[in-house]
């Protein structure tokens, strides 16, 4: 596979969904982390996934992004691209990008350099050695800096940012990759009220041109952004629907209160 992203016609979303997860099973030393999990994400959709601790939300993202291989089941990107045949780098190059639960940025590098590394260009060794930013790419980095509100911090090492700012920087790194699917694990953990509001605005503004899957425990936040919510419990989908439907579902109440 080349260092470049997919050719435009390679991704087939003509049937609606951009991500197909079907019958996924995964156990860790006998413990079933994912249990016959099936889930479909539509192109352009913003989906929230909730569920108690240990429900398998992060593990699901690990499976989609090639970090963990399931014992059985299939994961397709569009109609044709089998994600289980690809490693992390290939999945990322194909346009599925991920923010980790614990914010992960390169602390020794500046904010600008963090975004530069994420830029969607050929990421092979030789191309990287001789890479030079052109005007368009610089503008794109500036644009993303403005979107994530870190323009003033551009030359500072990412290590000195606040927790919330690191979360944003990581979201900015996803934007730089120009992804088709963004998997966002607990984006507002550790953010202030205002920061949470701005994050909600940001994610809402991105909906449509990209598909976004957000895992979050903050129900207020989920209510603000989600049109569809999936509840995960013990490694499989418990229910799916609008926030109101889901919150009034007795099984969901049972899981959250009983758990």
């Amino acid at each position: 596979m080349s260092g470049l992203a997919l050719k435009p016609d390679e991704l087939d979303v003509s049937h609606g969904p951009i991500l197909y997860l079907e019958g996924i099973n995964l156990s860790f030393d006998g413990f079933k982390a994912l249990n016959n999990l099936s889930l479909y994400i539509d192109a352009g959709e913003l989906r929230c996934v909730i569920g108690p601790n240990g429900a398998g939300k992060t593990t699901m993202m690990d499976v989609i992004t090639g970090k963990t291989r399931p014992d059985s089941g299939s994961v397709f990107f569009g109609q044709t691209i089998d994600l289980l045949k690809m490693d992390e780098a290939a999945v990322a190059r194909a346009g599925i990008c991920r923010k980790f639960q614990k914010p992960t940025v390169f602390e020794a590098l500046s904010v600008f350099e963090n975004l530069e590394l994420a830029l969607a260009v050929d990421k092979t060794v030789w191309k990287t050695l001789f890479a030079k930013l052109n005007g368009i790419q610089r503008d794109r980095i500036d644009e993303v800096l403005a979107i994530i509100g870190l323009t003033e911090q551009r030359s500072r090492p990412a290590g000195v940012l606040s927790h919330g700012q690191k979360q944003w920087l990581e979201i900015g790194m996803l934007l730089m990759q120009d992804p088709k699917v963004m998997l966002v694990d607990e984006p507002v953990a550790g953010m202030t009220h205002q920061e949470i509001e701005r994050t909600a605005e940001l994610l809402l503004s991105l909906r449509g041109e990209r598909s976004i899957v957000v895992v979050e425990h903050d129900m207020e936040f989920v209510r603000t952004i989600a049109s569809r919510v999936t509840v995960l419990h013990e490694g499989s989908v418990l229910t799916e629907g609008t926030m109101d439907e889901v919150q009034n579902d007795p099984r969901v109440i049972q899981v959250y209160l009983g758990g």
């Binding site: 780098a89 990008c97 980790f100 020794a108 350099e113 590394l117």
Partner: peptide, 22 residues
């Protein structure tokens, strides 16, 4: 840029992979 990727690998190897670098 290769130098920055290498430094990034030192600090957050996983993150680098998920950015699409081998």
């Amino acid at each position: 840029k290769l130098g920055r990727v290498v430094t990034a690998v030192r600090d957050q190897e996983m993150r680098v992979r998920f950015l699409g670098y081998r």
